[in-house]
Design a protein around this nucleic acid. Sequence first.
DNA 1: CACCTTTTAGAACAGCCGGTCTATTATGGG
DNA 2: CCCATAATAGACCGGCTGTTCTAAAAGGTG
Lengths: 211, 211
Amino acid sequence: MKKPQNTKPDGQGQASAKPANKKISKGQKTRQQLIEVAASLFQKQGFHATGIFDIAEAGNLPKGSIYYHFPGGKEEIGAAAVAFAGGQIAEALEELAGKAKDPADLMTKAAALLGDVLVESDFQGGCPVCLVALEVAGKAEPIRLSALEAYARWQAIIEKHLCRFGMEKKKAAAQAELAIAAIEGALILSQVQRSPAPLRRLARQLTLSLA
Amino acid sequence: MKKPQNTKPDGQGQASAKPANKKISKGQKTRQQLIEVAASLFQKQGFHATGIFDIAEAGNLPKGSIYYHFPGGKEEIGAAAVAFAGGQIAEALEELAGKAKDPADLMTKAAALLGDVLVESDFQGGCPVCLVALEVAGKAEPIRLSALEAYARWQAIIEKHLCRFGMEKKKAAAQAELAIAAIEGALILSQVQRSPAPLRRLARQLTLSLA
DNA sequence: CACCTTTTAGAACAGCCGGTCTATTATGGG
DNA sequence: CCCATAATAGACCGGCTGTTCTAAAAGGTG
């Protein structure tokens, strides 16, 4: 985790002079693609087991070029990937929350979704936010912050949903936090057991405490 | 993860001929010590971020000697460390279960214990079982099995405790699984938030669903 | 087309990692 | 006290890692 500095694309570069942002300069597109493949790799293999080379290869780029898009190195990629993955899950959760007919339904559907992803990936696709955040705990603040935001957002979505079905705000917040923790934990159990059963059972059990 | 082979201490060596097991051959003691320091390092830094050298150093041994005690290399150390850490937590849990005046009390005390460990380690000491297991998911079966056993044991302890307080077996099993998942998840939230609050709130919330 | 910027290519590097090997030193039963 | 064995010491290796650097190509605007 050194501190390199390139002929910088400004990180999120808003202020280039001449041939700049009409829409999204090719570089931003490449950067986004790299974030996506990185998120996928981190989810399956974890942060430390995924090399810069792996990410570059998956993005069809020589590994040296990675540092053009991410001057901050692996840490910057990690933070971006966690933020992206967290956002993806938030979006999925929001969609489910919109369609669910009640909180119990939401829990069941969310657990089912995570279980499906897990099974389809041969139990490699757990929660990327959790895995990466724990791996670098205390060593990469930007990554922690990305994870923090992801969890807050998920919790807010569930909390809002609970409120919508008549739960008072205070209780909803606590229940939402329990739901996030329980699902996260059940995902781990499912991964370790190589079975979606824990996730399924948890949804049922969580539902009971919601009644 | 290669497959080395030494002039073997038989892994758990029961069958040496001449100068063998009166009590615990010094080697077994060293091995145990290595497992303990490895477990501690894995808990704080994770599996991949912890080098063989780190473990050797912490055990006051040159790194080459590690392979005398663990012919299976890092994977064997990992499996042993996870099993050990899992056992330690199980023992602590059993002690708490013995002293707790009811299930709610057990949850509260368990969460408090984990929270204390977390805070004292500057939020580096999460759950080693979870972290290591996720890091090597799909790549080191022995480690997965160690984690599996740990979770099963924890769950059994809680289940038994719930039964002791009058819950029917089936429901107790489901509640115990929820408790494990929720605590595990809350530990992650606490670590990411750098605050023991999630763990504390979860214990309260879990208690409600127990009533 | 000319020209400056953005972006990619790919080599190079120092350092570390897991693992192996052999020589040496403790250990402890006979 | 002897001697086989257990255990430690420490050098060594090939390979990989994150990172840096410079040169070339692509891109797009005037």
